[in-house]
Design a protein around this nucleic acid. Structure first.
Lengths: 247, 247
DNA sequence: CGAACGTTTGAGATGACTCAAGCGTTGTGG
DNA sequence: CCACAACGCTTGAGTCATCTCAAACGTTCG
């Protein structure tokens, strides 16, 4: 089922079977896209939204010199641009980081789905607000943490999000992004990210090599990154680590 | 009218007169709050949302040492926590920066409003997504800009947002926040913010003194901050400055 | 085998931070 | 009405995290 991962393990907003079937039926197309392609440009009018099935996509804002700041990374099971449904026009670019498989849902179909189903509308609304919550965590990460903390926080977030859709076992997952991508996400340079990754390895917190993240000490990594997963609104939180006392 | 400023000058989502009246009727209480009070603590369950009528409020996340990162500043006319309507529980704190006047809208009343009015629901949804768009701009600001750029971007944003609700004439407005608040918003220290403000004055871009911002060169300030107001989804954009070429 | 790309390392530069002190304004109570 | 406390702003000097520039290395793929 294509929509299987959507809102998987999110607290209190599971789709009903009927809703999931309806959403599934609203998909008009499934496509694959190569890595590193721009999919939507800022300012473009859109009338469909994109559910990411496989791969990683990014949302980013370019500065005047063309340097990009990632503002979100989407993982399988997430809508990349459901916020385009109410907004129609995006304030940022969307592109693939890896080869991706996506499902297309026309906005007209979404309108039909929620027309007579307010609870469903609220769930879709909620899902766009989880993105907003992640944005806030990113602001915190970049604004308050040092380089090691930022990367630790980022990897902790990815671990939790991927765990929710069964793409991480809680300490080991595939993350096919480059150190330069990580730098663009964390507001650092790729050179410095490289040194930070070495530090995390030397601290025996985690290893990131060959597109693979291996977390050696989850509690330690989360503590170093000041990470608390509550903003992800996940079910069955299994991360007591984050509640521990200050360093 | 209490809701007068809500969604004022936002492109394509003006409330109808009937909707505005209904929203107005949904207000059960109007309160004033002192400056520097915490209003909602992270994790708290809420079943009302807060429309800010006067003053400035902030949303913030504390790190383990208690240092705060502002993730949003709300100005009059904005809902501070409408996202609590679908989410019920917030992932951040909410507090006042200045003395404030607020209107309380119970979630039950919101449900009643949108039950049989999908377009209205979409407008409320949209308004929470403008917050998300601002979050993204904040990520960009903190992640990609240097200190002078961050403050320039921040002040440009405030100018536009306040202009939309007639609290700025486009170059001159009251901003009752301290340099320390500005630092917490921009991921800087208050000492450095102070030096940055001096630089902006010396560059003859803008003056921030005694809770008053006076923009001397709007185009220049926006250029220095890499600011483009399109993410605010405002009507009648009067800021061609942002479209100019690279420095 | 060479080109392209991502990673790694080194050396030096710099923007922002920390610590510390002084200044100015406001409000309050003796 | 003055004195002082509280708070926010300003400035200086020294430190440090991260950046920049540059080069080398490893891997993949055609």
């Amino acid at each position: 089922m294509l929509t299987e991962r959507f809102l998987r393990n999110r607290t209190g907003i599971q789709l009903t079977d009927a809703e999931r079937r309806q959403l599934e039926a609203a998909i008009v197309d499934v496509r694959t896209i190569e890595a590193r392609r721009t999919v939507i440009k800022e300012g473009e009018e859109v009338n469909v939204s994109t559910l990411l099935l496989e791969g990683f996509m990014a949302r980013y804002i370019d500065d005047r010199k063309g340097l990009r700041q990632l503002v979100a990374i989407q993982v399988p099971g997430e809508f990349v641009d459901l916020h385009a449904y109410p907004m129609k026009r995006l304030d940022h670019n969307v592109g693939t980081l890896t080869p991706c498989r996506i499902a297309i849902v026309p906005h007209a179909a979404i309108s039909a789905l929620i027309e007579d189903n307010v609870p469903f509308a609220r769930k879709l609304w909620f899902s766009t607000l989880i993105d907003a919550a992640m944005h806030r965590a990113w602001i915190f990460r970049i604004g308050r943490l040092d380089a090691v903390g930022r990367v630790a926080h980022f990897l902790s977030e990815m671990n939790c999000r991927l765990e929710a859709v069964e793409l991480s076992d809680g300490q080991d997952f595939t993350l096919e992004i480059t150190q330069a991508d990580l730098a663009e996400a964390c507001g650092l340079t790729s050179v410095h990210v490289n040194r930070v990754i070495r530090q995390l390895r030397e601290m025996e917190l985690c290893v990131f090599r060959a597109s693979r993240v291996r977390i050696l000490d989850r509690a330690g990594l989360e503590r170093r990154g000041n990470f608390d997963p509550h903003y992800l609104y996940l079910d069955g939180q299994t991360n007591p680590a984050s509640k521990e006392s200050a360093s």
